[in-house]
């Protein structure tokens, strides 16, 4: 019994220690941002590898998610004779929820894991140490450009996801199920609110982007410098990101849409 409590104490101390270290790490990232902004070349290269390479995945997934919502939504809405609202339903689910959440989950799997593995391997092969000895701060040179790239890419990817999803819903709703084309778009325009829906969705994706890339770069930087350590860190990135995205999404949704 005593052992159990002791173990509990050790585990929670470990968690707090990691939280503390990751916060300190984040402060170091913040401090190095000005240096990265004045030399945007690195940042652009990272936006390419973090963002652009996730693009096709986001595009295809967005299309299918939009088509599925339209199919499912149509059968429910048609029971109430409200097929005309299909556009609103597709757009609202995507812009508020599925766009930010699903694209963040995909992003964690596609880009987050790659970031952790890359930084972890650089640590394992002493590249980070080597940089330090060349008086190049690895946080400013390696970590911060990747962090900013994630932060910038995420809302863009989520927007693309939602847009292509709405288009997918249109193909299914208007093309396949034969609902009125004008209604699909005009109802959407009338019911989707810029501040309430679009801005809130964007805020979500910015927060998810921040959390996922923070987790990814920290796990890589903090990985035990062995192949096993890096593989564990990569797994942790995906698992923790997924968990944090869903938890934070719940909290944000309650705060943003709880009173309507």
């Amino acid at each position: 019994m005593l052992n159990y409590f002791q173990q509990l104490g050790v585990t929670s101390l470990g968690i707090f220690e990691r939280l503390g270290r990751s916060s300190l790490f984040f402060v170091n990232i913040l401090l190095s941002i000005p240096g990265v902004i004045v030399r945007p070349r690195l940042l652009i290269a990272q936006i390419y590898s973090v963002g652009v390479l996730s693009f096709s995945l986001i595009l295809i997934s967005g299309l299918f998610v939009g088509m599925v919502i339209a199919l499912q939504g149509f059968y429910t809405l048609s029971d109430f004779g409200a097929e005309g609202m299909l556009g609103v339903m597709v757009a609202a689910s995507l812009v508020r929820e599925l766009g930010p959440v699903v694209s963040a989950l995909l992003f964690a799997g596609r880009a987050g894991s790659a970031l952790t593995a890359e930084i972890g391997l650089m640590k394992t092969t002493e590249q980070l140490s080597g940089m330090e000895m060349m008086a190049v701060d690895p946080i400013a040179r390696i970590v911060t450009p990747r962090f900013l790239a994630g932060l910038i890419s995420m809302p863009l990817l989520a927007t693309v996801f939602s847009a292509i999803g709405i288009l997918g819903g249109y193909f299914i709703g208007v093309g396949l199920l034969g609902i009125d084309e004008g209604g699909y778009w005009s109802q959407m325009q009338a019911k989707i609110d810029f501040n309430q829906d679009i801005i809130n969705g964007l805020i979500k994706s910015v927060i998810f982007g921040w959390l996922v890339t923070w987790i990814a770069v920290f796990e890589g930087y903090d990985a035990i410098p062995t192949s096993e350590g890096v593989s564990r860190a990569t797994t942790r990135t995906v698992v923790h990101s997924a968990f944090v995205i869903l938890l934070v999404d719940f909290i944000l949704t309650a705060l943003m849409f709880g009173d309507i």
Partner: peptide, 10 residues
């Protein structure tokens, strides 16, 4: 500093 492993940027 010359690292034992070389530590080149890969």
């Amino acid at each position: 500093m010359l690292f034992q492993s070389g530590a080149l940027l890969t």
